[in-house]
Design a protein around this nucleic acid. Structure first.
Lengths: 193, 193
DNA sequence: GGCTTTTTGTCGCCTAAGCGACACTGGAGC
DNA sequence: GCTCCAGTGTCGCTTAGGCGACAAAAAGCC
């Protein structure tokens, strides 16, 4: 989990500040939605100086990215304690994690219509890509790992997005089982581990 | 509430540090009891450097004092929004507050028999004294305000302690009504406001 | 359009907190 | 008795964060 887990030993002050900012951000997000949020809202709520905010994040978009990443990675780690290699079961849990996170994410933002959803998409796909790439580099593939990881991350997100918008949503586990062969084929893994 | 309320504007870093230390302390208190606690336990749990601890408190006893004070004052402020002057009703609520706090305090420490209880007694009486003194300085009394405040704080604490140890404890409100005349007499207030 | 008000980034100076090292104390175990 | 060792206070140095001020950009408002 080395490429994902970013919680290395770092200055406790930094940990606290990031934590405060992220917590304050998610709180305000639920109240005002993303567009209406100002940096001042966040820093005020967090009890952190505004200048300190900019020492950690370039703007509220960067904080959103960070927050999404953290949240998604946390869901992944909860579902797959050691997701360090490819297996059919890990892939299945990964799909379920995307379902779980994307559903939760939009409910944690007041008006998720704006740029919010597309930023979620970008970050989630980025994390997916990184994780798949790590898996694929350990196995033999027909195409390059980068190509396969790209296809896989887009396919997974696209499928989950449709699942999210479907009128009668089936349970995530059932959905995962259904699309698992398709996604696995996308990854073009020739030597299943 | 100026003499009690210590939450003036102060460096947010200091606020956070104290808050973390106090929170960690009360957590560990419930787990290990007071005697067994080490400064390291507290700082480790709080994510604060040990040296920083000593910048705020001389030792764990000082932190306990601080913690008791904070907790008790909070109960007072919850029960009497503006406890800035003497009134029969405020005095009644003050007695109830002592009941509430002392009962809660011992349940928040694993082995409250040791020095813990006597430190609670000291701090609670100190706060009582300060508050009573502030009230008494605004009115006319037969004896000096200091004398009356001393008598009052000891009487209140003593009565509540017996109430705490009584086999069949009556409700705090009823108890307060019962001892109110006695305590009021102790304060020797000749011109009830 | 123009105007005010809010929000945004950025900077310099100062203070609080982190860190590692130190000598010291007080038990626990032999 | 003795050693060992976990915990204690303290110190000097480094770094993160607070604060106020600033110009510039955005966002209302007429």
């Amino acid at each position: 989990m080395s490429t994902i887990n970013t919680s290395e030993k770092l200055d406790p002050r930094v940990r606290r500040t990031r934590q405060s900012l992220e917590q304050a951000f998610t709180d305000v997000l639920k109240e005002k939605g993303f567009q209406a949020i100002t940096v001042q809202d966040i820093t005020q709520r967090a009890g952190v100086n505004r200048a300190t905010f900019y020492a950690h994040f370039s703007d509220k978009y960067a904080l959103l990215d960070y927050s999404i990443r953290q949240g998604f990675v946390q869901v992944i780690e909860k579902r797959m304690l050691s997701a360090c290699h490819y297996s059919r079961d890990n892939l299945r849990h990964l799909i379920i994690a995307v379902c779980e996170y994307t559903r939760a994410a939009s409910s944690h933002c007041k008006h998720p219509q704006g740029q919010f959803e597309s930023l979620v998409e970008t970050q989630v796909k980025a994390v997916l890509y990184e994780l798949l790439l790590k898996w694929l580099e350990q196995t033999h593939t027909d195409v390059s790992p980068e190509t396969a990881a790209t296809a896989g991350s887009w396919a997974i997100y696209g499928l989950v997005a449709r699942w999210n918008h479907s009128a009668h949503r089936q349970p995530a586990e059932q959905f995962a089982d259904e699309v698992l062969p398709l996604v696995a084929a996308n990854l073009k893994i020739t030597q299943p581990v």
